[in-house]
Amino acid sequence: MKRIATIAAVAASVGFLLAGPNAVAAAPSHQAPAVATSCYGSAKSFSTDSADQWPQGANYATTTSNCADINVKPTSGMWVQTCFLGANFYCNKATWITGGTWGTAATGVLNGTAFYLQFDRPTHGLVAY
């Protein structure tokens, strides 16, 4: 039995060598496990008009398990405030976020929390939550 395994290994090596220098070994046929979406990798584009709020109107966003915080990357520097819906409706203190950088609008937010963002002027950019 050992001799058969040795012959098979030698045959495979010879076959690989005969294939030439550009031969590529085959990858295992198993699939890699699914990778969780990163916080910033799940970011969504946002834009505000004269409302200075996102989402606009009576709409709201709901936090996910992708991020522990609500993160905003506006195109220009501005103040942003997060308002949380529900029985204990409240808005946190406004935070300055420098344009073109990620900033935290709210920290330690539980998954499934309904919220909207209030800006001090119309803007657009990315939001990750």
Score class of each variant (00 low, 15 high):
residue 125 G to V: 02
residue 3 R to F: 09
residue 65 S to V: 09
residue 21 P to K: 13
residue 11 A to F: 13
residue 62 T to S: 04
residue 112 G to F: 05
residue 94 A to G: 14
residue 14 V to G: 07
residue 117 L to T: 01
residue 89 F to K: 01
residue 116 Y to G: 04
residue 85 L to N: 10
residue 117 L to P: 02
residue 22 N to I: 04
residue 63 T to H: 08
residue 115 F to R: 04
residue 31 Q to G: 08
residue 7 I to M: 14
residue 68 A to W: 06
residue 33 P to F: 06
residue 7 I to L: 15
residue 107 T to P: 01
residue 120 D to K: 05
residue 125 G to A: 05
residue 9 A to W: 04
residue 127 V to W: 03
residue 24 V to S: 15
residue 11 A to E: 08
residue 94 A to M: 06
residue 83 C to K: 07
residue 66 N to R: 10
residue 60 Y to W: 13
residue 72 V to P: 00
residue 36 A to Y: 01
residue 25 A to N: 12
residue 83 C to W: 09
residue 100 G to C: 11
residue 118 Q to S: 03
residue 126 L to E: 03
residue 41 G to F: 07
residue 42 S to Q: 00
residue 18 L to T: 10
residue 21 P to M: 06
residue 10 V to S: 06
residue 86 G to D: 10
residue 79 W to D: 02
residue 100 G to M: 08
residue 1 M to H: 12
residue 80 V to G: 01
residue 28 P to Y: 05
residue 113 T to Q: 13
residue 90 Y to E: 01
residue 64 T to C: 01
residue 39 C to F: 00
residue 106 A to C: 03
residue 50 S to L: 14
residue 105 A to W: 07
residue 8 A to M: 14
residue 109 V to H: 05
residue 30 H to F: 15
residue 59 N to E: 05
residue 40 Y to P: 04
residue 127 V to N: 01
residue 86 G to N: 11
residue 46 F to P: 08
residue 107 T to F: 03
residue 16 F to D: 06
residue 44 K to M: 10
residue 110 L to W: 14
residue 4 I to Y: 08
residue 52 D to Q: 12
residue 21 P to H: 10
residue 31 Q to F: 08
residue 61 A to G: 02
residue 39 C to H: 00
residue 2 K to F: 12
residue 58 A to L: 12
residue 59 N to W: 08
residue 57 G to C: 09
residue 38 S to M: 00
residue 104 T to G: 03
residue 99 G to H: 09
residue 54 W to V: 10
residue 47 S to F: 07
residue 112 G to A: 06
residue 29 S to D: 13
residue 52 D to G: 05
residue 77 G to T: 15
residue 4 I to Q: 14
residue 63 T to Q: 05
residue 45 S to N: 14
residue 20 G to W: 05
residue 49 D to Y: 10
residue 14 V to W: 07
residue 119 F to A: 05
residue 20 G to E: 04
residue 85 L to P: 02
residue 47 S to C: 04
residue 45 S to F: 05
residue 61 A to I: 00
residue 109 V to S: 08
residue 86 G to K: 08
residue 87 A to D: 10
residue 56 Q to K: 12
residue 89 F to R: 03
residue 100 G to P: 11
residue 126 L to D: 02
residue 37 T to F: 02
residue 96 W to A: 11
residue 22 N to Q: 12
residue 58 A to Q: 13
residue 25 A to W: 13
residue 23 A to F: 14
residue 36 A to D: 10
residue 110 L to I: 09
residue 2 K to G: 15
residue 68 A to P: 03
residue 47 S to V: 11
residue 36 A to C: 00
residue 50 S to F: 13
residue 13 S to W: 04
residue 31 Q to N: 13
residue 46 F to T: 04
residue 25 A to S: 06
residue 24 V to Q: 15
residue 100 G to W: 11
residue 86 G to E: 09
residue 59 N to V: 00
residue 4 I to T: 10
residue 48 T to C: 07
residue 94 A to Y: 06
residue 113 T to L: 06
residue 94 A to W: 06
residue 7 I to P: 07
residue 51 A to D: 15
residue 120 D to H: 10
residue 127 V to S: 05
residue 55 P to E: 11
